[in-house]
């Protein structure tokens, strides 16, 4: 009885304290961002908040498919950075973003790579190998994640889509599912973004794709029409688009070259991203083998990521 009475007093006091805290004077930005951008954006948030102490950034991380429903319904949020341009265009079509500039507002790109379990048991080296009988291929579901659309596009371009579909052992709803399945050897090969591959350096092999099948995925950012703090939101967006912001993306295996020549389907036309791919492959070697040198020259900007993953056997931070 005393317990219950004490609890009641506690609740009244606690709720009062909490409510008074709720109305702070800081500018709080609500940033709708794809789950996949989490590590890079968290780092950007830390640097940005140090630079502008009066602005606080709150993320609402979700799978990109969730955003349109959320934004349509709630009309809340200051910035928007989904995992594919397609989702941003949906917002533009509905009039949620007014000033999107496709030329300028793309701070970073995903690049597609092949990943296989450690040791590459089925000896996958190129796109055509996905059609070999007995290879368990992980595919994304095109309805729920962008990687699924790219799987279809890539294999159709190579003319092996039907055979690959027969080999499919997994229809993933989101891209981490593909990474985790590869890590646990549930599939023999799949295609993911470079930024996903870099999370599993210890447990997967990374194989770069030749230019004509290498997809470049644009990652735009925009300020939403109903932003509360338009100026602060703009400041954050400018920071993300600045060289400093891009450098942070680069540390997490995004391609950040301002111009990457692509064909109308989004496949790579030249070797702009070749160096990034070399770094990525080296990074995977460096985490697996202690003798492999970890220097600016071998792994480039992925150094921090490599050191992070070398620190523990099961990747954490």
């Amino acid at each position: 009885m005393h317990l219950i009475r004490n609890a009641a007093v506690f609740i009244v006091i606690a709720s009062f304290v909490l409510l008074t805290q709720a109305f702070g004077s800081e500018k709080e930005l609500l940033f709708h961002a794809g789950l996949g951008q989490r590590s890079a954006l968290n780092e950007i948030k830390a640097v940005f908040e140090k630079k502008y102490p009066e602005i606080k950034v709150n993320f609402s991380y979700k799978g990109s498919g969730y955003f349109i429903a959320d934004i349509t319904r709630s009309k809340q949020g200051d910035l928007f950075m989904p995992g594919e341009e397609f989702y941003l265009m949906q917002a533009v079509e509905r009039g949620f973003l007014s000033d999107y500039d496709p030329q300028k507002d793309v701070p970073a790109y995903f690049v597609t790579v092949i990943i296989t379990p450690k040791g590459n048991p089925k000896n996958i080296t190129k796109i055509e190998d996905f059609a070999k009988p007995g290879v368990r291929v992980g595919l994304g579901n095109p309805r729920s994640c962008a990687i699924g659309i790219w799987h279809q596009k890539t294999f159709q371009k190579a003319g092996i889509w039907d055979k690959v579909k027969e080999n499919a052992a997994l229809s993933a709803k989101c891209i981490p599912e593909l990474g985790n399945a590869t890590q646990h050897k549930a599939i023999d090969a799949t295609i993911v973004w470079s930024t996903t591959a870099v999370l599993y350096l210890r447990d997967v092999e990374i194989i770069p794709i030749e230019h004509k099948y290498r997809g470049i995925i644009r990652l735009p950012v925009g300020v939403l029409k109903f932003a509360r703090h338009k100026k602060a939101a703009r400041q954050l967006m400018d920071y993300i688009l600045s060289d400093e912001g891009r450098a942070i993306f680069r540390k997490h295996a995004y391609a950040v070259n301002p111009v990457i020549p692509v064909d109308e389907q989004g496949f790579c036309l030249d070797g702009t991203t070749d160096q990034d791919m070399t770094y990525l492959v080296n990074a995977a070697k460096a985490v697996k083998h202690d003798t492999f040198p970890v220097t600016e020259k071998t792994v480039g900007d992925l150094m921090e990521e490599v050191l992070r993953q070398k620190k523990t056997i099961r990747a954490g931070d």
Binding site: L35, R38, S39, A315
Partner: peptide, 11 residues
Amino acid sequence: YLDWNGGMMGW
């Protein structure tokens, strides 16, 4: 769930 999505199996 978040860390599962980030590939941080340790966490």
